[in-house]
Design a protein around this nucleic acid. Structure first.
Length: 940
RNA sequence: GCGGGUGUGGCGAAAUUGGUAGACGCACUGGCCUUAGGAGCCAGCGCCUUACGGCAUGUGGGUUCGAGUCCCUUCACCCGCACCA
């Protein structure tokens, strides 16, 4: 009997359609609900590719499984229908994009039906349908009236090629996400949604949802919360004050200059006449650069002194104000205090422009002890460049391998001291000073003096110029060997905390950004980092020169595109510059048809050309419609709400229904939406929750990603690589069930994995075997067969658990094991046959329906049959294979009664020939016995 | 640079969460059946070794009777973010 997949599949697809098998009665609250959602596709002209069915099959399996477990399942599908290709089509042909979009939708729908997905098509929505976007516009209107949608003048991501502005997540490496065209910063009047107002809620919400950790982390980084302070600086000789944002107010005593962004509003006012020319030139240079160039040229710091000085509020010191493009106008206050000792960027800048560096935080090494004596000392590292070796002094049992060290004498500077110590201890005199390294606060115990010390140590790096060596000048107790050694030896052998740390500083000179204790900081001296931050903030607030401040990286969401094919923004502008949202009765505000869909070169929307549509009279006054449209992510930010009640024409959805059906229980889609769609829809949902429209804060309770399906060469599928697999072809040749089984069997859902045509054949072979076995006359009998009892129950258990946890690959593997076992048996009891076909049905629904009907004689669809159960008791065996190890190595196996005692196990283990051989003549140290598992005999 | 992730046979991958590493599938090899097999069925299949046995989960170390699994080190690749003060 031949398994004719295509015939069977057509038959059952027709049956499901005619019987409305998957139609969900959303008002039926008698059963527990399960809302199972896919990320809806953009209906492109290319149709479905093999990546789509991966996620869709996963949710389809869960939906079908949940139905059989008695859930009322909502499993809808729809279209993210606004987008560039349709607009491009309109531009090229002069036709309205709606027709093109509709055609594509029909293709997608045909393909999805062909794959046997159990969508309730009566819930279908399309974001480009006025009945749908009426409510997108309505939500926008609420946002506008609540002050979350604003029209502001701001620097935006402008893409010349696309003729539109883009949101931050649509810009990748300074290029547009779609098309890869260059994007520049440009000041424009723009609609924005103030998503940063929801930053904290969006951050907190992440704690409550079951999402992949990596995605949550990405959202956290994108929101980019940082806690710090605002500090006010007066400008010397003026009554101007500017504010900086810093996360490290504790280092304020170490601020040696300030930097403003070139665009900062004060720059022109504070620049002195002498500096004017340079400053203006620098500003011009920065303005010309695109974002891409700015980030590309980030190796070398640039900047110009303004001639003005700021007054440090904590100590009244005057410090120079510079401008530099390493300070961004759009983040914080657009100005910073620079602490080169404790910030890498400031350090680089200070080094380049020779600005002083003041260390105000010392790393602590060693362990503090009572009754310590304080000292100042040095650690000097001498480097021989030619041989790539460092000079060490080996004190042997008196302290091991160290660098040159010594205590500062009265009136001596650290540098003097270091130079002197090198000469005295080593005799080398032809040396060159390279770096002074950050000071370290070190605690130690000196054996020779029997005393505890607390020293402030300054590190130095010197270079050996020549080998000329004078005689050493040593004290009696200085007994050590001088040794030139390489870096690895030092890493391995220098154990002293102070010397080790000093060496690390020498290898990588720069800012000390870690924790430690404060110095040169008056009331902060001796405090650790966090304590000092708190104290400093308190001080600033007390003196009214600053306050605690939280900043977010998350920017306003640029919410307008100068394109045609999107939702019109429901706003009118009056001649006096005021504006207002149009009346609810005018929604939906439908897109007008145009002669010419091209964007204009000056950045105006194509809608400007629809003059009849644009010019209106509102409240008796002349007004002009907003001609920008909404971005693609507008409709997708709330579409999942609409599925619940797609035809409601007086609200976005019935409140009772939303209360019953939300949140989405399982949401599956690609990880590429981590900071776009998935953040925007959370934002809208939080907002609608706060307005009492939606009953839950977080829309998607559980989120899972599907991985990418690669071409058989392991590369991304693309036309140019010639490795694209078309699902239509696979279905034609092997059937939809085969495609479903194969894609689920390939590996874990979230992993990306290469396509393998031979693997598809394997999946088909499995279904062939299922079909042949179950469709053969004598195979299914009303009779017991003990041989399959255990494996049947094991299979029900494994498959059930795996469906719950979305481990479809191992579920299928278990079903294969079961079928392999069946082939060793003459027949299968009917009960087990029905149970197995039910297990199979979520993955391969057509073949399951066919066998359910033809071989098992049922009239109704299998869709709502009860899920099979298993008995734990049937899984326990009388005996098991006990493993016997000697010293952890497997030396024998033996069948043992499940209830055997530890003593019995041990006795049996020692009787095995190969075990005897391995323990013979040796002393048994210990025997580990794990009941119902193994015995490990440890011998000596 | 920062954050997240992944490294297991020729390949896709499993591994009850510390207890027989490589289930299942692909490829390969052999057998049966056949006029035939690119169908089907059965069996074998990590590496080295004739065997006994030894070696194996990116590298190196550690904890343990026992480590793919836990800890430290290091390398490679993938994905985000990137002068965010």
């Amino acid at each position: 009997m031949m398994y004719e997949a295509n015939k069977i599949e057509k038959k059952w697809q027709k049956y499901w359609d005619e019987h409305e098998t998957f139609k969900t009665d959303v008002w039926d609250f008698s059963k527990p609900k399960f809302y199972c959602l896919d990320m809806f596709p953009y209906p492109s002209g290319q149709g479905l590719h093999v990546g789509h069915p991966e996620g869709y099959t996963a949710t389809d399996i869960v939906s079908r499984y949940k139905r059989m477990r008695g859930f009322n399942v909502l499993h809808p599908m729809g279209w993210d229908a606004f987008g560039l290709p349709a607009e491009q089509y309109a531009i090229n042909t002069g036709n309205h994009p709606a027709g093109f979009t509709e055609n594509n939708i029909q293709t997608f729908k045909r393909q999805l039906k062909m794959l046997g997905f159990s969508y309730d098509w009566s819930k279908e929505v399309s974001t480009a349908d006025p009945k749908f976007y009426k409510w997108t516009q309505w939500i926008f209107k609420q946002l506008y009236e609540d002050g979350y949608a604003k029209c502001v003048d701001m620097p935006v991501n402008w893409c010349e090629e696309l003729g539109t502005v883009l949101a931050n997540d649509e810009v990748i490496d300074g290029k547009s996400e779609r098309g890869g065209y260059p994007v520049i910063r440009k000041n424009m009047r723009q609609w924005v949604l103030t998503i940063p107002k929801y930053a904290e809620k969006l951050l907190e919400g992440l704690e409550k949802i079951d999402w992949p950790e990596s995605t949550k982390e990405m959202q956290k980084n994108w929101i980019g919360k940082s806690v710090g302070a605002h500090v006010d600086f007066k400008i010397a000789g003026t009554d101007l004050t500017f504010t900086v944002f810093t996360t490290r107010p504790d280092t304020l005593f170490g601020a040696t200059y300030c930097v403003m962004a070139p665009e900062h509003e004060y720059v022109d006012r504070i620049t002195t006449d002498e500096q004017k020319e340079q400053v203006n030139a620098y500003k011009l240079e920065c303005a010309k650069k695109s974002d891409l160039e700015r980030t590309e040229l980030n190796k070398e710091k640039t900047g110009v002194f303004t001639g003005a000085y700021a007054i440090n509020p904590v100590n009244g010191k005057e410090i120079p104000i510079w401008i530099s493009d390493y300070v961004l106008a759009g983040y914080g206050t657009g100005a910073i205090m620079a602490v080169p000792a404790h910030d890498t960027r400031d350090y680089e800048f200070a080094k380049k422009f020779d600005i002083p560096i003041i260390q105000v935080l010392e790393e602590v090494t060693g362990t503090p002890h009572e009754g310590e004596t304080k000292k100042n000392s040095i650690v000097a590292i001498l480097y021989d460049e030619e041989n790539d070796k460092y000079l060490t002094v080996h004190w042997h049992e008196m302290g091991g391998r160290l660098f040159i060290g010594g205590t500062m004498k009265e009136g001596e500077t650290p540098l003097d001291c270091a130079t002197r110590e090198i000469k005295e201890e080593t005799g080398y005199k032809d040396i060159e000073f390279v770096h002074e390294l950050p000071k370290i606060n070190h605690h130690y115990y000196a054996y020779n003096k029997d005393k505890y010390f607390n020293i402030e140590s300054t590190g130095f790096l010197f270079k050996l110029v020549s080998n000329v060596q004078e005689e050493q000048n040593l004290d009696d107790d200085e007994k050590f060997d001088l040794e030139w050694v390489d870096k690895d030896t030092i890493m391995a052998e220098v154990n002293d905390g102070l010397h080790k740390k000093t060496f690390e500083y020498a290898l990588a000179p720069g800012a000390m950004e870690g924790d430690g204790i404060h110095i040169h900081s008056e009331f902060l001296d001796g405090l650790g980092k966090q304590e000092a931050i708190d104290q400093m903030i308190a001080w600033l607030e007390e003196h009214h020169v600053g306050k605690k401040q939280i900043n977010y990286h998350l920017r306003d969401w640029i919410f307008a595109r100068q394109r045609y094919w999107g939702e019109p923004i429901p706003i009118v502008h009056f001649e006096d510059g005021s504006m207002k949202a149009i009346d609810d009765s005018e929604l939906p505000l439908v897109l007008p048809e145009l002669e010419d869909y091209r964007p204009s070169k000056n950045g105006d929307s194509p809608l400007e050309k629809a003059t009849d549509w644009v010019h209106v009279t509102v409240d008796g006054k002349k007004a002009k419609r907003e001609t920008s449209t909404m971005p693609g992510s507008a409709g997708s930010s709330w579409y999942f709400l609409r599925y619940i009640d797609p035809n409601n024409d007086h609200e976005i959805a019935d409140k009772k229904l939303l209360e019953h059906w939300l949140p989405v229980d399982l949401y599956v889609g690609g990880p590429e939406h981590a900071v776009g769609h998935l953040l925007y829809s959370r934002f809208w949902n939080h907002y609608l929750y706060d307005k009492g429209i939606v009953p839950v804060e977080e829309p998607f309770q559980t989120l899972r990603h599907q991985g990418m399906i690669l071409g058989s060469n392991g590369e991304k599928m693309s036309k140019s690589r010639g490795n694209v697999i078309n699902p239509d072809d696979i279905v034609k040749e092997y059937g939809a069930d085969t495609l479903r089984v194969y894609e689920m069997f390939m590996g874990p859902l979230e992993a990306s994995k290469p396509w393998d045509t031979k693997g598809v054949e394997g999946a088909r072979r499995f279904l062939d075997r299922v079909y042949r076995y179950f469709m053969e006359e004598h195979r299914i009998r009303e009779e017991e067969n003990k041989n399959v009892e255990k494996i049947y129950h094991a299979t029900v258990k494994k498959v059930t658990n795996d469906y719950e946890t979305l481990n479809f690959n191992t579920a299928i593997s278990q079903m294969m094991i079961f079928v392999n076992a069946l082939y060793k048996e003459e027949f299968i009891p009917k009960e087990y046959a029905e149970g197995f076909i039910k297990l199979l049905s979520p993955v391969a629904p057509h073949i399951a329906e066919e066998i359910w009907h033809e071989a098992l004689g049922h009239e109704n669809t299998i869709t709502y049959e009860a899920w099979p159960t298993y008995e734990e008791s049937k899984l326990v065996e009388d005996t098991y294979t006990m493993v016997v190890q000697v010293n952890g190595k497997v030396r024998g196996k033996i069948e043992v009664n499940t209830n055997a005692s530890k003593e019995e196990m041990e006795t049996l283990a020692k009787e095995i020939e190969n075990v005897k051989k391995n323990i013979e003549g040796k002393e048994i140290v210990k025997v580990i016995t794990i009941p119902a598992k193994l015995v490990n005999i440890v011998v000596k």
